[in-house]
Amino acid sequence: MADSIALRATAVAKAHPRARSEPAFARWALTGTALSFLGLFLILPLGVVFAEAFKKGIGAYLMAISQPEALAAVRLTLLVAALAVPLNLVFGVAASWAIAKFDFHGKNVLITIIDLPFAVSPVISGMIFVLLFGSQGLIGPWLAAHDLKVIFAGPGIVLTTVFVTFPFAARELIPLMQAQGSEEEEAALSLGASGWQTFLRITLPNIKWGLLYGAILANARAMGEFGAVSVVSGHIRGVTNTLPLHVEILYNEYNLSAAFAVASLLVLLALVTLVAKRIVEWKSGSELAAGRGESK
C-alpha cells in the first residue's frame, strides 16, 4: 500500500520534473546575486590583501615580515594569545560548571554579565582598563608607587584581551553542559570517585570538543583584537605593538605593501582558524550523534 503510493509519487514527479522549481530567469538572478555578493565582500578583499602584499615581489614581502618591529609584533601577539586563551578556558570551564550543574541565586545575572564583553564596544573595554590602571586611574597611583606598569605595557594588553575574549569558552560550554546534565557525574560519585577525579575523567572528556571550539574562537579574537588593545597599548614600536596595531602604523605611513604583507599573516591566521573550526565541528558532530544515541 505504502509502496504503491510511493511509486505513484515518483511517477508524478517524473511527469512534471520542474513542478516545484522556479523559472529559469529567477534561478539565475538569485544565484547570481548571491555569488556576486560573496565575491564582492569576501573573495575580492582576500585577493586584494595578497595582491597588495606581493605587489613588489616576494623579496619585498619577506623583507616586510622579517623587520625587527614586525617580528616583535608577532612575538607579542603570540605571547598575549598564549596567556589570554588558557586563562579564559579556566574561567570559562569554572563559570559554565557552576551555571550548568548547580542552582543558585543570581544565576541569570551571572549569565548576562558573562556576555558583557560582547555587548560593549571594544574601545570602551580598553577605556575601562585605562580608568582602572592608568596614572590617573583607580589603582594607578598604587601601581606607580610600586613601579608596576600595566597601561602602555604588556600586562594591560593581556588584561584587555582576556576581557574581550571572556565569553567565548563559557558561551560554548554552558549549553553543552546543560544538555549533558549531571547524571554521569552522579554515577561517577556513586562509584566512589572524588570530585576532582569526576571532573578529570568524566566532565572534561565530555566537553573537550566544545572547549577546543571555544579556544579556537577565543584565539582568533585574541590575535586579531584591535580597538581595545589600541587604547591600552600606547603604540610603542617594537614593544607594545601587536600585529593589528603594527598593520595600522605601516598603513598610516603609506607603506602599503609592508602593511598588506603583515596583514596577510592575520588573514592566514583567519584561514587556519576556519579550517580548524570546521574540523572540530565535524569531529564533535559525529561524537554528538553517538552521544544522542546513548541517551535514547
Binding site: E183, E184, A187, A188, I202, S295
Partner: peptide
C-alpha cells in the same frame, strides 16, 4: 546506583 537512563560514560 542504577540510573533511569543508565548514565553510562559515553566516551
Amino acid at each position: 546506583f542504577v540510573f533511569q537512563h543508565y548514565a553510562l560514560f559515553r566516551h
